[in-house]
Amino acid sequence: MGCPKCKQLALNAEAAVKELNIVAEISKVTDIGKIIEYGVMMTPALAVDGAIVLSGKVLSKDEIKKFLVK
C-alpha cells in the first residue's frame, strides 16, 4: 500500500506540521486491518488525534493546516 497519492498526503502532512511549528507525531498507516478499523474505504485518508477527517483525497498542505488548527 504505497500508492503515490498516499505518499504525497504524508509529505503534505509533514510540511503542514513543520510550518505550524507544532509538536506532532505523524504515522502512515498501511496495515489493511487498521485501515478498515478506521472505516476508511478510499485511500488516502487523514486522521487527526485518532479521528478520520477526510478520505479519498490528497489534501494540500494548507488544507491540512486548517484541520490541525481546530
Binding site: 486491518g33 487498521k34 478498515i36 478506521y38 472505516g39
Partner: peptide, 12 residues
C-alpha cells in the same frame, strides 16, 4: 480474514 476490531469510528 483480517485481524480487526469492529469499526471504531466512521468517516464523517
Amino acid at each position: 480474514r483480517f485481524d480487526y476490531k469492529k469499526q471504531v469510528c466512521c468517516v464523517q
